[in-house]
Design a protein around this nucleic acid. Structure first.
Lengths: 255, 255
DNA sequence: CGACATGTTGAACCTCATCAACCGACGTGG
DNA sequence: CCACGTCGGTTGATGAGGTTCAACATGTCG
């Protein structure tokens, strides 16, 4: 019926995971819930894999036989309408968890937005470990709650924000991520620069717009001095607080 | 800053829960994960409460001290922009669970869309039981995963569907619920009738439209024969399959 | 009955989508 | 080396879908 389906990328290579303790995402990822003993059990079955940008990692219509942590890169979760219209329903970065426990089918595609490195766990083995260590499940649960909050925040954006507000919100989100990763929380009114992990087309699909509108609104924010665009993918935000206002985001009165 | 806040309704009365085994939602609700012994422990601390339509059950800006199962009625989860624009980010029916475990704050309002009956559990007591019985947490986790899927489905609707498709999707969703509740799964091409649990204004807020557009598109579906509208809130769908096509929903080739 | 809330219908307007041309960067092959 | 095609992005002109504002209809309750 639906010929809009996308095919999962062939797995080109997968490397045994040697040591988790040198892993860059060790503490922030779900594995952070595990003790050393448990972790070594998990590392036994883990394999590292790389995907090129635009490759499909998991698919709507094929059950996937593994879960994964994102080590580096950006993964987009997309959904399709029968006629090909597309919506990105989630963006995932390191150290996010990929895949849906309980039920092998996921109702979306997971695609590499940039080049991506994953730490993959075979479904069966991971589920066994999951049953054994409730802390891990608890961690995944909390993760899912946060994802749900983010999804709902995005529903507000998609349903009620203007094109300009959408772009501002998107850039604000990425800029906040960039600051909080660098060094705890920086002051709100600070100069932030970062790299867009998405093409204009992907930004459009994430915000429910067209590429033309995305382009126009970005230049608009640029001429209004709210952002600076050095290259196509390099953005500078001189003042986060101002941007957040344009984005229609209540900045909870932080210090 | 934000004067758009909403106030939680005063609690008019709360009744001791007598027996869970006569509860209408006993098996479908999260409590279904508990054995009789555990359940009696939970029922010790449960209280039944009623809310009138439009009353606020939980609020964005006040931590709520309880969780709840919906016994009857419809609850809408709403979010606000600083200027008052509103988006419904979730609809919950019996026997859904209300509230966010781990962290007392929820980033939305829970409001009674119709008159609502809840079975409420004080936060502290419920969290204790939660730690004691992993099955309960597991059930809540699965619930949350389903909610996340639903939220993402709605993101596709909000971002990419036309007004007509939005209305069709919304009606299709409610009609499917109505059939699956009645008696397992009925055949796809069947006559379904049900009551809208939302006002036009709420429908608009759920679909990211205005009331006028909602009204117009409903009459359009009516004139096209896709639905019949007996009273304002009573809808008949003569053929679910046809409606699903207009809604842009892939009906997974079921039997 | 009149007042008020909820929903419908009409007309004008505006934001964003569509269609199309264009630009610069990049890679390829003659 | 440069012509060429391609790809990602920008810009312009036009139009449609949905919003806005306003009037009207219907239903409910005192």
């Amino acid at each position: 019926m639906n010929d809009q389906s996308k095919k999962i990328a062939d797995i080109t290579g997968s490397v045994r995971v040697s040591k988790c303790d040198v892993c860059a995402i060790r503490h922030r990822a779900v594995c952070g819930a595990l003790s050393d003993v448990e972790l070594s059990k998990l590392s036994q079955i883990s394999r590292q894999r790389k995907y090129k940008a635009e490759q499909i990692i998991m698919s709507d219509d094929e059950p996937s036989d593994f879960f994964a942590n994102i080590i580096s890169g950006t993964v987009k979760l997309t959904k399709l309408l029968p006629d090909g219209r597309q919506q990105i329903v989630g963006l995932q970065f390191a150290p996010d968890f990929l895949g849906r426990t309980y039920g092998a089918q996921i109702p979306y595609y997971a695609e590499a937005a940039t080049d991506v490195e994953l730490c993959c766990f075979p479904r069966k083995g991971f589920e066994e470990i999951l049953e054994e260590f409730p802390d891990l499940e608890n961690r995944l649960f909390k993760n899912t709650l946060d994802e749900l909050d983010a999804a709902r925040e995005w529903m507000l954006l998609l349903g009620r924000k203007t094109a300009k507000e959408k772009i501002a919100s998107f850039i604000y989100m990425l800029a906040s991520r960039a600051t909080s990763i660098g060094c705890g929380h920086t002051a709100l009114s600070e100069f932030v620069s970062f790299t867009l992990p998405l093409s204009r087309a992907d930004v459009a699909d994430y915000l429910g717009l067209t590429i033309e509108t995305v382009s126009r609104q970005i230049t608009r924010l640029k001429t209004e001095g709210l952002i600076q665009v050095t290259s196509n993918r390099e953005i500078i935000v001189p003042d986060l607080a101002v941007l957040s206002k344009v984005a229609g985001i209540e900045v909870s009165d932080l210090i």
